[in-house]
């Protein structure tokens, strides 16, 4: 079975639905959970949903630009995870908590 034969059976719309479901699950996690580390993980999940959609469109259109954009999204995700986790460690060092609902000192 050639891998290219999947184009005859799977439409781009199925990838759009799958990515939308993944993105919505990530959004639900960001809204629902309080643990900051799980919030960061849900953001990674949303970024991966977008990556999957970029790749699907790139492959179906026969254009490599979408896959290059996936690289750049991966770079931004890695930088975001590094800085976010450093901030998280700093917050934990000062408050002994990773609960984001305790970080309400700036509300005025």
């Amino acid at each position: 079975m050639s891998l290219l034969s999947i184009f005859n059976q799977v439409e781009i719309s199925h990838y759009i639905y799958l990515s939308t479901v993944l993105f919505s699950i990530g959004l639900f996690g960001v809204l629902f959970r309080r643990n900051a580390i799980i919030l960061l993980m849900c953001i990674e999940l949303m970024l991966n949903a977008v990556n999957l959609l970029f790749t699907a469109f790139s492959t179906y259109m026969g254009d490599a630009d979408g896959q290059i954009f996936v690289f750049f999204i991966m770079v931004v995700a890695a930088a975001e995870a590094a800085v976010g986790l450093a901030i998280l460690v700093l917050v934990y060092r000062n408050t002994r908590k990773t609960d984001v609902s305790f970080l309400d000192q700036l509300k005025g």
Binding site: I12, S58, T59, Y60, G62, A64, Q67, I68
Partner: peptide, 19 residues
Amino acid sequence: VAKNPVEGIGLVKALGKVL
């Protein structure tokens, strides 16, 4: 979206050229 699959688009050679 028009279906226009191109063979070998996801390999290192093609991606490196674009990048």
